[in-house]
Design a binder for these strands. Sequence first.
DNA 1: CTTGTGCCCTGACCGC
DNA 2: TGCGGTCAGGGCACAA
Length: 279
Amino acid sequence: MPELPEVETMVSDLNKKVRGRRIKSVRLSAPKILKSGSPAFFKKNIAGKRIIGIRRLAKNILFDLSGGFLLAVHPKMTGHFLYGQSPGRFKHIRLALFLDNGQNLYFNDMRKFGRILFGPREKLENSKELKSLGPDALAGNLTLKKFKEILSVKKGKIKSVLMDQQTIAGIGNIYSDEILFTAKIHPLTLVSSLGGNSLAKIFSAMKKILKKAVLLRGSSLSDFFDLSGEKGTYGDRRLVYGRVGQPCRRCQTPIKRIKINGRSSYFCPRCQPDKEKFK
DNA sequence: CTTGTGCCCTGACCGC
DNA sequence: TGCGGTCAGGGCACAA
């Protein structure tokens, strides 16, 4: 499931492979994933545009195109890009961009949860999907001071708050567990009960884990692959996510799994005790 | 305002 | 081998 590190990996690769290329035409095999305008408008207006650059906005991949257009792709659970002359072994191509150098860019997405937005840049940047995002988890200007300010007015469980894109953008189910394990905070802990020291631990764990995962090109626990179809390697080194019943890497206690807001949450019952107030 | 639930979608997995 | 049921989950619409 692409989160900040996986999307960052895709964006970095995309800038190396397709920046400066011109899009000759597109094929939209799953029209329903286009959430703005009609397929006809999309096909007509993207043809001939040059890719000026690719950047990350939370978990969105933004292609700045010539003519003032923007293509915004959210990979959701299983979406990822592939670059080359054919998609190879991948069989769920929902969008193909045919480029002026004879190579193609494919968006592969098994579950069709992915979301594509296309339109004039200003209009898209002001859409509810892209505008309501909180500060990026790795943004340089997200300091500890600001982090505390943001969380201090929040209610609810720390795991849910970390995953809320309107609060802090970029963290999903895997990395929220990794962060809370590193900070030794139980995922059900109410934010309102966290002291400054705990918030500081979460903050530094957030920066550390995400930066490490970016360096390792993300995790491929479900269906993430980079532009060449290769897996990221953070998953091999993950601390708790998906390790239910396996020994904690710190204290050997079996890792537990609970459901929080319908999402699996993994933690070590000994390293992350529930001493803090939950209710 | 907040919090909770269902939905989208497909492949993997399980029990019989 | 096959078949039905269940599960996984990011973000959003919608309800309470």
